[in-house]
């Protein structure tokens, strides 16, 4: 089974994120980069399927050179190889452009399953997996909390507002995962050493056969007009419970007309 896992490097979850004043894109230099948390669960699920069914796991990412750190982490968890699309022309790409670039790289490589985390912690749109499925014309199995493979068919539990749906398809398929699905492994020392020797294919946009007119900030389908830090919230009233904290809270709720 050939499995791809699409990962994204994002600013550290704990760091303060901000937009650049010059072009309103995310300031990726201002914070340490880490692998998007949900993508670790995607890598883990791919590795578990490989352990059970055999095959190869390939990491796919697009992003600046330093996104190579995220590629190495995925390789040290146990993936076999990686493809890294890196090009200044990609800077400022929106979800439409990102899905175009990723779908173009994946097309023709005959992956049976293409994994994603269901959301990135920076943009939080949750649309790229569905967009890649749309562009490739393959089944969309997103928000999976459980994945089962049987021969050439794959079945997931898709989390919904009311519980979950069971969704089935024949491969190939795009799968996105939620964090309930597994517990990602930590890279072992052996894994970290082995990762240094694993093949990473670095592609420019022209290597990948991408049209420049569809990529980057100048091609974006949306534009930021302006942005501002949210005004700091006025300090609230904090009381210490001396036996009547609940009563005081009820009084506050009454003055705010909640009760």
């Amino acid at each position: 089974m050939k499995i791809a896992v699409c990962v994204k490097q994002v600013p550290d979850t704990w760091a303060e994120k901000k937009l650049r004043s010059d072009d309103s894109t995310l300031d990726r230099e201002a914070a340490d980069g880490v692998m998007n948390e949900l993508d670790e669960y995607a890598v883990e699920e791919a590795l578990k399927l490989q352990e059970a069914h055999g095959g190869e796991v390939t990491i796919v990412t697009m992003g600046p050179e330093r996104a190579g750190e995220t590629v190495r982490k995925a390789l040290s968890m146990g993936a076999d190889a990686a493809i890294h699309l890196v090009d200044d022309a990609l800077h400022g790409s929106d979800a439409l452009a990102t899905s175009y670039a990723i779908a173009t790289i994946l097309a023709g490589r005959d992956f049976d399953l293409i994994f994603f985390g269901s959301e990135s912690t920076d943009a939080r749109m949750s649309v790229v997996p569905a967009m890649v499925a749309e562009r490739l014309g393959v089944a969309q199995l997103t928000f999976a909390q459980k994945v089962d493979v049987d021969g050439t068919s794959v079945k997931i539990q898709r989390t919904t507002d009311y519980g979950f749906e069971t969704v089935e398809a024949s491969m190939p398929a795009v799968i996105s995962v939620v964090e309930k699905i597994n517990e990602p492994r930590y890279p072992s020392f052996k894994g970290i050493m082995a990762a240094k020797k694993k093949p990473v294919e670095t592609l420019s946009t022209s290597d990948a056969g991408l049209e420049g007119s569809q990529l980057g900030l100048s091609a974006a389908w949306t534009v930021v007009e302006d942005f501002a830090a949210r005004p700091p919230k006025a300090a609230g009233t904090i009381v210490t419970d001396d036996g009547d904290g609940g009563v005081k809270l009820a009084e506050f709720l009454a003055t705010q007309k909640f009760i």
């Binding site: 904090i238 009381v239 419970d241 609940g246 009563v247 009820a250």
Partner: peptide, 18 residues
């Protein structure tokens, strides 16, 4: 609005008040 205190005392009390 914040209450510094044990939620197992504060929450039942506010529930009763409501």
């Amino acid at each position: 609005f914040g209450v510094v205190g044990d939620l197992f005392k504060v929450v039942p009390q506010v529930t009763e008040e409501i």
